[in-house]
Design a binder for these strands. Structure first.
Lengths: 252, 252
DNA sequence: CAGTGGTCTAGACCACTCC
DNA sequence: GAGTGGTCTAGACCACTGC
């Protein structure tokens, strides 16, 4: 199949842009439209270059952009893959409690949803979520437990679109992992996230939910999650006992 | 002038690395050595490519790495310039204090070395540093300040080889950044690092150095730094006021 | 082994900046 | 107009993966 660079889709990128940037747009389109499924490989670079009628280097530049953005991942000798959602379990290997029997990094903590409702987003939240037009959103409050007692308290904000359908579901239907749930119910794939780690003390209400003393020191993780298209789709604040907190990072 | 890729300097990067990565090392060397001054343009890409006897694309890949790292900045039609604030502190952008006047992520904190001596490495430290044969090492204690007061306390362990030469130097000769210093004095390039973040409270001795109360909550960052060859070359524990601590992470 | 991405070449022309 | 970086081509060969 030969796909002309100028006629691949209804959305033709600005012709004045460099070819590799237009290619990036067209490839991103095919990914977000679901033509290439998350977790699977896209066609080989030589094949795609031939299909679009561009040189290999140009195609590679376009793919490179999507790799930098986190939409694609290259695997030398194997192929180029559409990123599936961040396995939340794998994200949790960075956030584990130390010195405990439940050290198992793959363990998925049990989730209990205490609150779920539509809310008006504060201006800063609205901006974070890119929900420019609508100031409406969804707020979720849940605790997560590794054993019996609650260890983590999470406050989660979502834009009303495309998550509105979640409001109609029973809280027990959510399961312990949200990102696969987002994908199944709302067709949103979380591709990457940005976290900010800080330190604070528990407010009275939060302390009650965690069964800890007001003012107890906690680690505070603020996470913004992004879709394959690069749009912010979730903001969450996680709190947990500071002295049990442990977080690993690889630099460069 | 023609400079052979293989004979440009006494420090020849590993020949097994791709050409553009070796080029990057050699260009970085000329920048850090001061041959090209901060704020000024380096030679044109065509000129450098000819000098090193490589294709333009290869030279551009090498420059691209240094641009990504923030050491160089391209200006279309004007040239490629050495960044003024030679922010070798790229590793420090992950560890910044919030809500303060010295928010500038590129600011390099002032360093004061309080202790520097040869020590026997505890077994776990010896293992971390891969100093299997020799159990001897170097211990360094220093504080770092963004303004006048000390903000961070760092305990640093190094294997005796190849850092032995540091013991003969005056403490004031160390400067504010250790990694460039390691490279200049000991020919060790820190290529990547692994960090573990946690929280704790200040011991009495440490509290005195930070001029804070014993038991004050602190963020604790344990970092293992690795050389280009992948060998662990430094282990350091950094402590700082938990309430000022802020750490950003990108997850993909 | 075939197929994939990774590196590299030696050109070409375009877009931008400054004189 | 001269010099710079930006884009693009059409090849070549290497390194890695999996059968």
């Amino acid at each position: 199949m030969k796909t002309e660079l100028s006629a691949v889709s209804a959305k033709v990128p600005d012709q004045r842009l460099p070819r590799y940037q237009r290619l990036r747009e067209m490839l991103a389109e095919r990914i977000t439209q679901g033509e290439w499924a998350p977790g699977l490989a896209i066609p080989a670079e030589t094949e795609l270059a031939a299909e679009y009628g561009v040189a290999l280097g140009t195609l590679r530049s376009a793919v490179g952009l999507l790799v930098d953005e986190g939409m694609l991942a290259r695997a030398h000798g194997k192929g180029t893959f559409v990123r599936s959602e961040l396995a939340q379990a794998s994200m949790f290997r960075f956030f584990r409690f130390r010195g405990q029997a439940h050290q198992d990094a793959t363990a998925i903590p049990k989730s209990i949803i205490h609150d779920l409702r539509e809310v008006a987003l504060a201006p800063d939240l609205s901006e974070r979520l890119g929900a420019g037009r609508s100031r409406r959103g969804i707020f979720m409050l849940r605790t997560r437990s590794f054993t019996d007692a609650p260890h983590l308290l999470e406050k989660i904000w979502l834009p009303l679109q495309p998550f509105k359908t979640l409001l109609r579901l029973d809280r027990t239907a959510f399961g312990d992992l949200l990102y696969p749930f987002y994908r199944e119910r709302c067709n949103v794939v979380v591709a990457r996230a940005s976290e900010e780690i800080g330190f604070g003390t528990l407010a009275q209400k939060d302390a009650a939910l965690l069964r800890m003393a007001t003012g107890h020191p906690v680690a505070v993780i603020e996470r913004t999650a992004f879709s394959l298209a690069g749009e912010p789709v979730e903001f969450r604040i996680t709190q947990g006992d500071a002295y049990c907190f442990h977080y690993g990072v690889e630099i460069k």
